[in-house]
Design a protein around this nucleic acid. Structure first.
Lengths: 199, 199
DNA sequence: GTCTATACGAAGATAGAC
DNA sequence: GTCTATCTTCGTATAGAC
């Protein structure tokens, strides 16, 4: 196995375990066991746990950028792109109800630990923020695009947290429908499908 | 010092440290040091860390009930009571930007740990949920009072998470103003002060 | 009730053989 | 590049003196 392949496998396993169990609660042994590696070998690829965290955050930044680029390329309407963002909540509902939002929960954990990487983790939010802001600008809301982007992020985070606490899939679907209705109110010219409203 | 006094001091110190650093990241030694106690003495009061967690959650349930009871007693209008809930975000903004929402972050952490107490922690949310639901019922929205309560909780959680990630006090104030405008739209008869709207 | 001393295991990290 | 063995630190938990 080449160094890069093993390294990549470590990052992907750490990414999953940091999400499912949290950063602190995941040990080197956990990641190594997952891959059938010895702990010793581990240190050939990463000297410290913080190095793995940095690599995981970079990996998440890359995959997130790829996802947003794909939406930018494949979806014509900015409103439909924003809807794709809403729909993450439904597509990932099972994992969200079990482990929360990968971005929000990591930022919260690193904030409590006052960890050096907490600002890096917040860049994941910043990535969504600037992308969403761009979509709202394209919808003619350049003046308050950033505030609208933060508002959307805020609601997605709230839905994730409550969905985890209450394990309630209907709540997720209701709030996504409400987000779509909200989007329609914000940008009535964007030719969205007719929204269902609740509450 | 009586057993009950010491026990109460332990619970209060643990409550604060669990909030500021997280449950897992807080050790017995941390709590003991905070109070000038020896670790040995500690075990006279609590046998395991999970016992402390249970006591902390019970303590939070009590103080939360006290706060809601006081609002119920001191504030006439249900809409004004709901506004008091919104205003927690502003009153506690400094601690929220540093450590997030005490309820949301605890529920998230316990969910990741798949901890036995995660359902107990969710009862803190349930307490706010049923109280908010009661206020919306009193405002004539009995039919969808629970959905409205969850919606309010959802937005408060989202605001807390993003405020932590971005350390943005103006964002908090803007979203609280938006919540007040939303409340006014939901219950136009409730004689609220004129809301500022944004975004 | 509070203390000191200590057992035990887990986790981060290193050294050196293959 | 991967392994085993080992070191060190820390955290939970216990025993027993005062």
């Amino acid at each position: 196995m080449s160094a890069n392949e093993t390294r990549q496998q470590i990052v992907e396993a750490a990414d999953r375990l940091f999400y499912e169990r949290g950063f602190e609660a995941t040990s080197f042994a956990d990641i190594a066991r997952e891959l059938g590696l010895s702990r010793g070998n581990f240190y050939y690829h990463f000297k410290t746990k913080d190095e793995i965290l940095d690599a995981v955050i970079r990996h998440r930044l890359e995959t997130t950028r790829d996802m947003l680029d794909a939406w930018e390329r494949d979806i014509r309407s900015p409103a439909e792109r924003i809807r794709s963002f809403f729909r993450i909540l439904i597509a990932n509902r099972t994992r969200i109800m079990a482990h929360g939002c990968p971005v929000g929960t990591l930022c919260n954990e690193l904030a409590k630990l006052d960890h050096a990487a907490k600002a890096d983790a917040a860049r994941l939010f910043a990535l969504f923020r600037s992308w969403l802001s761009g979509q709202f600008s394209a919808l003619g809301r350049a003046a308050d695009a950033d505030a609208l982007a933060l508002h959307v992020l805020m609601r997605s985070q709230g839905v994730a947290t409550l969905a985890t606490a209450f394990h309630d899939e209907r709540f997720i679907r209701r709030e996504v429908a409400d987000l779509e209705a909200w989007l329609h109110d914000q940008c009535p010219d964007a030719s969205l499908p007719p929204p269902r409203r609740s509450p």
